Amino acid sequence: MNVKQLNQFEYEVTGKENDAIIDLGQRQCSCRVFDLDQLPCVHALSSYEQAGIEVYDLCSNYYKLETWALAYVDTIYPVPQQEDWDINEVKVLPKVLPPNVQIKRGRAKLKRIPSVGEGKKWIKRCGLCEQPGHSKKTCPLRATTSKL
């Protein structure tokens, strides 16, 4: 990947697949992988390498070992068997019923968007002459051909 420094914090990274602009101060990339996952994307890795910054500084604190260790500092007690559970009968919540709704008579109305050809009225065309406004029975062409 080719890395070109634009200013003190921004770099332009070009490669085979796509180009990106990295902002080192904001920790943002135009490919948005770096923004969403809080892990460096390929563009960020190449620009940080040129800037001389440690790769582990790119990651969010949530991915670092110290944060994971702090999450498990306290004692985690196992859950006892279900027979040993002490459930107080008074704390049982009442049964929740659905709301009272009056059902209206008739067919339910649907709110929907009509399809592309749905709003147009069809024009009746003749089967013999393909002209609009009449059918085979009332076609003037049929009347002239039947007399011959």
Results as ranks from 00 to 15, higher is better:
residue 89 E to L: 11
residue 132 P to Y: 03
residue 66 E to F: 04
residue 57 D to A: 05
residue 92 V to P: 04
residue 32 R to V: 09
residue 127 G to V: 00
residue 89 E to C: 05
residue 85 W to H: 12
residue 36 L to W: 09
residue 23 D to A: 08
residue 137 K to C: 00
residue 132 P to A: 03
residue 105 R to K: 15
residue 124 K to Q: 15
residue 118 E to A: 15
residue 141 L to S: 06
residue 125 R to C: 13
residue 61 N to L: 04
residue 19 D to P: 02
residue 111 K to N: 11
residue 11 Y to E: 04
residue 28 Q to G: 01
residue 53 I to K: 09
residue 5 Q to Y: 06
residue 12 E to T: 00
residue 73 V to F: 05
residue 37 D to P: 00
residue 121 K to V: 00
residue 48 Y to V: 02
residue 41 C to S: 07
residue 73 V to I: 08
residue 26 Q to N: 12
residue 26 Q to D: 11
residue 46 S to W: 03
residue 116 V to A: 15
residue 129 C to L: 12
residue 59 C to N: 02
residue 45 L to T: 04
residue 87 I to G: 01
residue 77 Y to N: 11
residue 78 P to N: 06
residue 148 L to Q: 12
residue 100 N to S: 13
residue 101 V to P: 02
residue 61 N to G: 06
residue 137 K to E: 04
residue 7 N to F: 09
residue 35 D to V: 10
residue 79 V to Q: 09
residue 140 P to E: 04
residue 1 M to H: 11
residue 113 I to F: 14
residue 11 Y to S: 02
residue 15 G to W: 02
residue 82 Q to E: 09
residue 29 C to W: 10
residue 74 D to E: 13
residue 10 E to C: 14
residue 85 W to R: 10
residue 110 L to Q: 15
residue 28 Q to S: 10
residue 113 I to Y: 14
residue 87 I to R: 12
residue 17 E to A: 05
residue 85 W to E: 10
residue 2 N to A: 13
residue 148 L to T: 08
residue 74 D to N: 14
residue 100 N to Q: 15
residue 146 S to M: 02
residue 80 P to Y: 06
residue 102 Q to A: 10
residue 8 Q to Y: 11
residue 135 S to V: 10
residue 68 W to I: 01
residue 60 S to L: 01
residue 55 V to F: 02
residue 25 G to L: 09
residue 116 V to W: 09
residue 96 V to S: 14
residue 39 L to P: 01
residue 86 D to G: 00
residue 113 I to L: 13
residue 77 Y to I: 07
residue 112 R to N: 03
residue 59 C to F: 13
residue 137 K to I: 00
residue 104 K to C: 12
residue 5 Q to V: 09
residue 35 D to W: 02
residue 47 S to F: 01
residue 132 P to F: 03
residue 32 R to I: 08
residue 33 V to H: 12
residue 102 Q to V: 03
residue 133 G to F: 03
residue 57 D to V: 01
residue 20 A to R: 05
residue 115 S to E: 10
residue 46 S to R: 05
residue 122 W to K: 13
residue 97 L to M: 14
residue 139 C to V: 04
residue 135 S to I: 08
residue 23 D to N: 15
residue 40 P to M: 06
residue 47 S to A: 15
residue 134 H to R: 00
residue 98 P to G: 15
residue 35 D to P: 02
residue 83 E to L: 08
residue 129 C to E: 13
residue 71 A to S: 08
residue 14 T to V: 11
residue 84 D to I: 02
residue 8 Q to D: 15
residue 46 S to C: 07
residue 33 V to K: 12
residue 99 P to W: 13
residue 75 T to M: 03
residue 86 D to A: 05
residue 18 N to F: 05
residue 96 V to N: 12
residue 49 E to L: 06
residue 127 G to K: 04
residue 8 Q to T: 12
residue 94 P to Q: 11
residue 30 S to F: 04
residue 112 R to E: 07
residue 99 P to I: 15
residue 126 C to Y: 12
residue 101 V to N: 07
residue 138 T to W: 07
residue 120 K to M: 11
residue 141 L to R: 06
